[in-house]
């Protein structure tokens, strides 16, 4: 357990002190600030604009950050050879993978909370009244980040370069927003090869429809309790599978 905690600790420190990570935070601050300017275009919907643009901005920047950081998480340590020193100590390879992943998520979640705090400050100054839906949609965004991070980590270990891993993750991220369309196309396709290919892609790509809490909120609806259950179960299963596969790939890797 000490080994796992040590890896989590140094991963969090590494991210917090990294300029790239800080520039993501700064960029998000600019984006939330610009929501204020954009909102003046729709005077009657100003609060709604700040709320939507801000939340979408936090999620988008966090997704960009998690893809960029997670893809390079192990690859950079391999390039700088710092992984030699870590793995020459008695630490299980799965502990290293899990520690790097959890450390990255912790740092990113802390950044998301910080960005949300800044966003909420602007909202409150504009007269917005607290709604628990804000917290639930933030948690849904965090789950989404966790899922895409685990996929990025797996792809970084199964492809040969960070560029290809980033491209594949980005591609699957886009496809993840069209899960029901992919399923529809697979069902309607007459070609069995196409059917199989679409089905495979649909299974691999994360199904982001599980995380659309903001759609419920905007429609002034409350999702049924089962929705929360399915979202949690899907998140745990997807991340668990991706981390298991990553650990398996990493345990076979030589340095």
């Amino acid at each position: 357990m000490d080994g796992l905690l040590a890896v989590i600790y140094y991963t969090v420190k590494e991210h917090i002190r990294n300029r790239v990570f800080l520039s993501f935070l700064l960029f998000c601050g600019i984006l939330i600030g610009s929501a204020l300017v954009i909102s003046t275009l729709a005077m009657d919907q100003q609060l709604r604009m700040i709320l939507n643009v801000g939340q979408a901005g936090i999620e988008f920047i966090s997704l960009m950050a998690v893809i960029f950081i997670t893809v390079n998480l192990v690859l950079t340590e391999m390039e700088t050879r710092s992984i030699y020193l870590v793995l020459s100590h008695p630490i299980e390879r799965w502990q290293y993978i899990l520690g790097r992943y959890l450390g990255t998520l912790l740092a990113l979640f802390a950044a998301m909370i910080l960005m949300s705090g800044f966003h909420l400050l602007i909202l409150f100054l504009k007269g917005w009244v607290w709604n628990n839906s804000y917290l639930i949609s933030l948690l849904a965004s965090m789950a989404k980040i966790g899922v895409i991070g685990s996929l990025a980590l797996f792809l970084s270990l199964s492809t040969t370069s960070s560029a290809s891993a980033m491209s594949f993750t980005g591609f699957l991220w886009v496809l993840g927003h069209f899960s029901s369309e992919l399923q529809f196309m697979a069902e309607k396709s007459a070609n069995p090869l196409m059917k199989a290919a679409l089905w495979t892609v649909q299974q691999i790509a994360p199904n982001f429809s599980y995380y659309n809490y903001r759609d419920f909120w905007q429609a002034i609806q409350t999702p049924p309790p089962a929705w929360f259950g399915w979202m949690s179960l899907y998140t745990v299963c997807y991340i668990g599978t991706a981390l298991l596969l990553s650990s398996w790939l990493f345990s076979r890797r030589e340095f």
Binding site: G3, A6, Y10, E14, R81, Y84, P90
Partner: peptide
């Protein structure tokens, strides 16, 4: 104990933090 040719240690850590982490890794 492994002493590599060039020390590949995470540059974002302080010397004390790095040694402490390796102490934890070495149980």
């Amino acid at each position: 104990g492994y002493l590599p040719e060039a020390a590949y240690i995470n540059k974002y850590l302080t010397g004390r933090e790095a040694v402490n982490i390796f102490a934890k890794l070495s149980k």
